[in-house]
């Protein structure tokens, strides 16, 4: 906050920082703000100024077999890839947090490495390996490859969540007579659910945005939405691309909102001090000081 007694230098500093950051935020947000209106443009060139409002490009998008097929493929592949990544990643994270062994740090680095290995290398390698197995040009191959790319996100969010999980709750549940499976579903899972969900969202977003591995692995039948956009941008850039982009932005916004809700819920569950708790604690401290 700018204090009333701030010196002129501090004032200049204060406002110039805000102006600078405003410009950076504009830089970050403007491309998204620019592409969405164009999808409602009546003109057939992807260019400003707009000539009028129309749903034309959405009709084109949802009326074309190529685009709807791409959307359908994305909606088949991404959820299944997410499921594989979340199940395998969550199980492994439980193990990683609960047990120590030599080389554990190395193992974690390896499990996270699909995130940093250049994706072209992963794509070429997976293609080279999957092709002789008949997995290139198949949904199964794409799902497995996308799951592989999503695993690091699940591992990192899940290990972080589990490290804050109080294992005594499991012991308490067991001492009260619950079997391990009941304990997992009644005690562990509700508490780590925010971690599972945010890991899943990251894995989903990774798969839903994936182009490069799909470029190598998918036959025309398995083209996903980003893959189709890649061809669209390369070959003839038409406003249908803006419509497809708007669909993708809508999905991204939805994911971000869910994530924010999950974050709030997990803060509540972890017992982060709420205003009431704070006031209780303050009055408690006051009493002790007075006493």
């Amino acid at each position: 906050m700018l204090q009333p007694y701030a010196s002129p230098v501090e004032r200049v500093w204060y406002y110039s920082l805000r102006v600078l950051c405003g410009l950076i935020i504009v830089f970050l947000v403007v491309p998204i703000l620019v592409i969405v209106p164009l999808s409602f443009n009546a003109d057939s060139i992807l260019m400003y100024p707009m000539s009028g409002f129309s749903w034309r490009w959405y009709h084109e998008f949802f009326g074309s077999v190529t685009w709807t097929n791409a959307l359908k493929n994305s909606l088949i592949i991404s959820p299944l890839a997410t499921l594989v990544a979340v199940v395998l990643g969550t199980l492994a994270s439980i193990g990683l947090v609960r047990v120590n062994f030599p080389g554990k740090a190395l193992l974690i680095s390896v499990l996270i490495s699909p995130m940093v290995v250049p994706v072209v290398i992963a794509g070429v390698a997976v293609y080279l390996f999957f092709a002789p197995l008949g997995l290139s040009g198949s949904y199964l191959g794409l799902i497995l490859a996308h799951a592989m790319l999503g695993v690091p996100f699940v591992i990192t969010t899940m290990t972080a969540t589990l490290q804050q999980f109080d294992y005594n709750l499991v012991r308490a549940s067991a001492s009260l007579g619950a079997d391990p499976i009941k304990t997992f579903f009644k005690v562990t899972l509700p508490l780590v659910a925010p971690g599972v969900i945010s890991g899943a969202l990251f894995a989903f977003a990774t798969s839903f945005d994936e182009v490069v591995v799909t470029l190598f692995l998918a036959s025309p039948e398995q083209r996903t939405l980003p893959r189709q956009m890649f061809s669209g941008i390369r070959e003839n850039i038409s406003p249908t691309i803006a419509a497809a982009a708007t669909v993708l932005v809508a999905v991204a916004t939805l994911l971000l909102l869910v994530l924010e809700l999950v974050r709030r819920r997990s803060e509540r569950l972890r017992g982060a001090p709420t205003p009431i708790a704070k006031s209780v604690r303050r009055s408690f401290l006051k009493k002790r000081i007075e006493a």
Partner: peptide, 13 residues
Amino acid sequence: LPFWTSVLVRVAA
């Protein structure tokens, strides 16, 4: 928000 938006959307933009 841009971080969650597809790379291709941003390239097109």
